[in-house]
Design a protein around this nucleic acid. Structure first.
Lengths: 206, 206
DNA sequence: TAGATTGTTAATCGATTAACAATC
DNA sequence: TAGATTGTTAATCGATTAACAATC
């Protein structure tokens, strides 16, 4: 059942979740509709209804969706009704920004450990965490059962670090390295490369 | 002609460009093939050939594509045969990481100006640039003809800053704020939200 | 030449949208 | 009730893939 839901649908759920958070915070209404949500996100109302229909019936004809209820349902669908501990690999400037980023709180994730192989960084404090030596990374992942990693190392080191993470049992990797990573099919990787995003837009510029 | 090329195709070109850079750096061969490129990127060879065929004929039957030639062609298609000056709005930890990020160099972009509205940050040096007051942002964009902006401000300030950027003439925005921005159709926006990326993957975790 | 690979066409596959009965 | 909006079906739209003639 779950396996046949298109990944592109899964990819929109966090966007819906985020919009619902804002709506709840605004507190203008207890309910929303597919039309209202779609207008905010630039998505058709039909698509939103179709997406949600993969998982159940969350709305009421005539009134739409209860914001808090739909929010909770999406949280459960995405397995965010628990906090995922995250290991951060790389204590450079990107790693630093991530270590101090407040946005993980209350959205299902917490960076708990930071690793680097640079002796000048090891032992440093970053937002209450001590940068640890890569040599004990695999052991920690196994012992703590960590499944989620953020990779913020230079491109040249990314694949070898990925192999290490995968071997230790990591199943989801968010990579900031500007390179495509090879992983086995059961491991999910998402990429963040600001330059790729910018390059995609300059096509439309003169 | 250009207008009818799907945006999803445009979105893959920077990925191809990045892979070609690595291939050129490795220097193992002067040529590649759609099959070779596809294997590296997890994309079918047919799709790569189809994508490229929107823009011209860059290969040779029997031998494939000259890496440097294809690289140059893609650079031109994406308008990266010039350096785009970028204005960075927000000098917090994300802004700081971006200001010091070396990855923009040689990939078509340079952050030239940093703005913030926090008096404690204004005047600070960041990688050779002085953080400037938001009050002179619009004037600078107009005077310098800046078209590309990176937005790294809190969600609460993102829409009002976007409105300011758009009004001043910015046409491409890369936003790190975890919120959907409303912009006129001629302005392109891309988003980077690490939490959204992570949330998309936890669906597949137990 | 023989083998390899392109560019392109047609077929397939999948995603989005329009429309509407059901019903709150 | 009348108006609004859901969930779903069928139609449309668009993207991917398979296949192959052309040709290096």
């Amino acid at each position: 059942m779950a396996g046949d839901i298109p990944d592109i649908v899964i990819g929109r759920l966090p966007i819906y979740l985020r919009a619902l958070t804002h709506m709840a915070a605004e507190g203008e209404s207890l309910t929303t509709s597919s039309h209202d949500l779609g207008r905010r996100l630039g998505i058709s109302s039909a698509q939103i209804r179709k997406d949600l229909s993969h998982f159940g019936e969350f709305g009421k004809q005539g009134t739409g969706y209860n914001i808090n209820y739909l929010f909770e349902q999406l949280r459960q669908i995405l397995h965010l009704d628990q906090e995922w501990p995250v290991v951060l690999v790389g204590a450079g400037s990107i790693g630093h920004a991530l270590a101090y980023y407040q946005g993980f709180k209350h959205r299902g994730f917490e960076i708990r450990w930071i690793f680097d192989n640079d002796p000048s960084k090891i032992g440093q404090d970053m937002n209450g965490m001590i940068v640890q030596d890569m040599s004990i990374l695999a052991e920690l992942i196994v012992d703590e059962g960590v499944q989620v990693a953020i990779l913020a190392v230079p491109a040249a080191a990314a694949q070898q670090n990925t192999d290490l993470l995968v071997k230790a049992g990591i199943r989801s990797i968010l990579s900031y390295a500007p390179i495509n990573l090879a992983v086995p099919p059961e491991v999910h990787v998402r990429y963040t490369d600001p330059v790729v995003q910018l390059q995609r837009m300059t096509y439309y510029l003169d």
